[in-house]
Design a protein around this nucleic acid. Structure first.
Lengths: 187, 187
DNA sequence: GTCTATACTGTGATAGAC
DNA sequence: GTCTATCACAGTATAGAC
């Protein structure tokens, strides 16, 4: 029973809620009905498990940013990015939660530093392509606020609205929030 | 040297960046130029230190919410709340950072549970006084996004704009974001 | 008020039997 | 692939000298 994939999901959920430092291998093993050693048979170390848990989501976000850098962020391209980002949040809530909760505490862990780089790239992109402080904050609040609100709903036990409704609201609000922002065409 | 107040501030900074579970008393002691035992002379336990670090900020936020519940959130009252909230974020960046990073991981610690209650109350207030899912998310994104963006700037090492500029931008954006939201007069 | 020494517990990781 | 046993170490906290 309890395949490596199960462990990945159990670990992700625990890391997201109890934190990386706050989650012991023992705890993960218990939840999986295994012993510590069996967990370490599937994943050589705690850090390996962390990498397996959040790596794929980081890969996906890296690809989105790659794509972003090669287009100017106007009209259809902007709309595509916002719906894509929303979809990412909805599909990777736990990874995002884990990152929000632990991103700054695990600077020495490579896979987390990759995640921090992703956010930094996003921030740099908007910082270098918008003029005013206010516009930069619009991006921060739109993207960060969407991510954070979604995670807090979950961690505070607030019952969420239907996914379709949440998705629509997020896209609407982010679009509206960024409407006044002018992104320089030649990034 | 190294009074209890110094320890509070050192601990707060470390908890915010490295996390509560990720920060050892030894580490705090080193930064203060003391031994573990001396730290534990000033604060009976690690948890006591945490309480001293974030307690005052929670008190203040509790007072703001108390005030909020006794007024309807329109016109001048709404503006007052938004500037007050912004001021709170600017003056308690580290406490907010600590909460964002660790709020969900420390559910069993009383002082953190108080902080979680504060956010829950805020969410409840807006949830029960606004009609649509979209309006609820507007509040989440406005308040959560402002808090999160401010903290991320710091933790990612992005150089922040002048405080006055940041304050103005936050108030402008939050006000605009919540403009379409109707709060029922009789809460 | 600060220290060293110590007790106790939990944790990540390894060795080796089955 | 799973287990028990074990190790080495870090962590919180206490006792007691100075």
């Amino acid at each position: 029973m309890s395949s490596a994939i199960d462990l990945r999901e159990i670990a992700l959920a625990e890391f997201a809620t109890a934190g990386y430092a706050g989650t012991s291998i023992h705890r993960i093993a218990d939840l999986a009905g295994l012993s510590k050693s069996s967990v370490l048979y599937h994943y050589a170390s705690k850090e390996t498990l962390l990498e397996a848990a959040i790596g794929p989501a980081i890969d996906r976000m890296e690809a989105m940013i790659e794509d972003l850098a090669s287009h100017s962020l106007h009209g259809a391209a902007r709309a595509r990015f916002l719906t894509g980002f929303t979809e990412f949040l909805l599909e990777h809530r736990l990874e995002v939660h884990m990152f929000i909760n632990q991103g700054s505490s695990l600077v020495d862990v490579p896979v987390v530093e990759r995640a921090n780089d992703v956010v930094r790239q996003l921030a740099d992109y908007f910082a270098s392509n918008t003029a005013s402080t206010e516009d930069k904050m619009r991006f921060g609040i739109a993207l960060g606020g969407a991510a954070y609100t979604l995670c807090m709903q979950q961690s505070l036990g607030i019952e969420p609205a239907p996914v379709e409704e949440t998705r629509a609201a997020l896209v609407t609000i982010m679009t509206e929030l960024l409407a006044p922002v002018h992104i320089r065409p030649s990034a």
